[in-house]
């Protein structure tokens, strides 16, 4: 880990990453003016093809997924150590190694990481809407060791392929990573105790926290404001298959949107990690 370098905002999709970035963007901007969803200034996404193409000097569009994964740690290291790049970059890849045995998220390039975590019972319906698939399909993807984002062998996706694995293995890959220090932030805590939760995460990212400014930033990033802004001006990060990026943002919505069978399956797939992070009680029941 390096003092100056890249900070990662890591999460499984639909776990509060964008909300976190909006608050961070508003905070870095002084917490004074309305947030422009389509001009978040926090950083890039780790899977950006432009980023790797620019630094490598040749096109990832002409490389296989395994070849691209071999470049990525070196590109991040170059950006951090030689291009003086800092910033807070979203990433949906699990914390994994390439076939040369190197962590794709290069620890030398990394100055900090926050892992955003959300109850998988709430992730499933949101992820389904995000992908434009039914909830059963989303549950299956969340339990698939080979799940990935932006995989397209027949064409070009603006983003490079991101290996995610299962929801559980995604969580554990980051929070148990030995090469980097990762601050874990639960979506539910961002809701319940926003000031305290964001402050702790910002501090973990090396920011000096000004509580008044943070309070203003949190207020500017209220969910209904973001949802309203998306409805009026669109959101460039909305996947084409999703009707709306900012759907409900609620906690516990699963009680209405999931069937009993779906709840049972998610708990069977992810019980151990759910318990570890307080999403199941001592009896294994969802809280």
């Amino acid at each position: 880990m390096t003092q100056q370098g890249l900070s990662w905002l890591a999460s499984y999709p639909k776990s509060g990453n964008t909300w976190f970035r909006v608050v961070l963007s508003a905070y870095l901007d002084g917490g004074e003016s309305e947030v422009d969803l389509n001009a978040l200034q926090t950083g890039m996404i780790g899977s950006s093809r432009l980023w790797v193409d620019d630094v490598a000097g040749f096109d990832t569009a002409d490389l296989t997924p395994a070849e691209i994964e071999r470049l990525r740690p070196h590109v991040y290291r170059w950006s951090a150590l030689h291009d003086g790049m800092g910033g807070y970059h979203k990433i949906h890849d699990a914390y994994l190694y390439n076939d040369a045995g190197e962590p794709i998220v290069d620890p030398v390039a990394t100055s900090g990481a926050v892992y955003l975590l959300r109850n998988p019972l709430d992730v499933a319906p949101s992820f389904a809407a995000h992908l434009g698939v039914d909830i059963d399909r989303a549950i299956k993807l969340m339990s698939s060791p080979n799940a990935s984002l932006s995989r397209n062998d027949k064409g070009l996706n603006p983003q490079m392929m991101q290996r995610m694995g299962t929801w559980s293995s995604h969580v554990e890959s980051w929070v148990d990573a030995t090469e980097i220090a990762c601050h874990v932030l639960r979506y539910e805590d961002m809701h319940a105790t926003p000031q305290q939760s964001f402050a702790a995460a910002f501090a973990a990212l090396g920011l000096t926290v000004d509580h008044e400014k943070l309070a203003r930033a949190i207020s500017l990033a209220a969910f209904d404001k973001l949802s309203h802004q998306e409805k009026s001006g669109g959101f460039r990060e909305r996947p084409s298959k999703a009707k709306q990026f900012f759907r409900s943002g609620q906690m516990g919505g699963w009680r209405k949107s999931l069937t009993t069978d779906q709840v049972v399956r998610i708990v069977a797939d992810h019980g151990a990690v759910m318990k570890r992070f307080g999403y199941l009680d001592a009896h294994g029941e969802p809280v």
Binding site: A56, G57, F58, E67, R70, L71, H74, V75, W78, H82
Partner: peptide, 20 residues
Amino acid sequence: VQLSPYAWTTPTAFMLFVPD
């Protein structure tokens, strides 16, 4: 002068390495 993990240059020459 190294420009990236894979590219180097002088005023008249340029070297590129595409791994593997």
